[in-house]
Amino acid sequence: MPAIDWEDPFCGEGANCFRLGTDTDGNAYIAVAGKEDAPLTDTREALRALIRDIKTGKADHLL
């Protein structure tokens, strides 16, 4: 696995924490905090799109 530069954890209510990371090859990663050895991987643009969609409320139905 390439070296991943992880951001500080984002934690919601009830301590549901996840981390975002990137590598030098242009990949983006999302992992549950403490489980960084098993991340989901996609492109940075896909991660940007996911974050934009979450901010606009497109994932609110999942909550």
Rank of each mutant, 00 (worst) to 15 (best):
L63P: 02
L47F: 07
C17S: 05
T22L: 01
D37E: 11
E45V: 15
D25P: 00
N27G: 08
P9R: 01
A49R: 09
N16C: 06
K55R: 14
H61Q: 11
L63W: 07
L20K: 00
P9Y: 04
F18R: 03
E13P: 09
P9A: 07
G57E: 11
A33D: 13
A31L: 05
T43S: 13
D42L: 12
A31C: 05
T24E: 09
D8A: 07
I51N: 00
A49E: 09
I54H: 00
R52F: 10
R19F: 00
K55D: 11
R19G: 01
Y29A: 02
K58C: 10
T41K: 15
L50H: 03
L20F: 05
A59D: 08
A3V: 15
A33F: 03
D23V: 06
W6H: 11
D25R: 02
M1A: 12
Y29E: 01
C17F: 02
F18E: 00
A33G: 00
I54T: 02
E36R: 05
T24H: 02
G26M: 04
A3L: 11
R52P: 01
A15D: 15
P2R: 10
R19W: 00
T41D: 03
R44N: 14
F18D: 01
A46W: 12
L62Y: 12
G12S: 07
D23M: 04
F10N: 01
T22V: 13
L63I: 14
E36I: 04
I54N: 00
D25C: 02
E45L: 15
G57N: 08
A28H: 01
C17T: 11
L62D: 09
D53R: 13
W6V: 14
T43W: 03
G14V: 12
A46P: 05
F10E: 05
D25T: 09
R48D: 13
I4Q: 03
D5K: 07
R52E: 14
I54E: 00
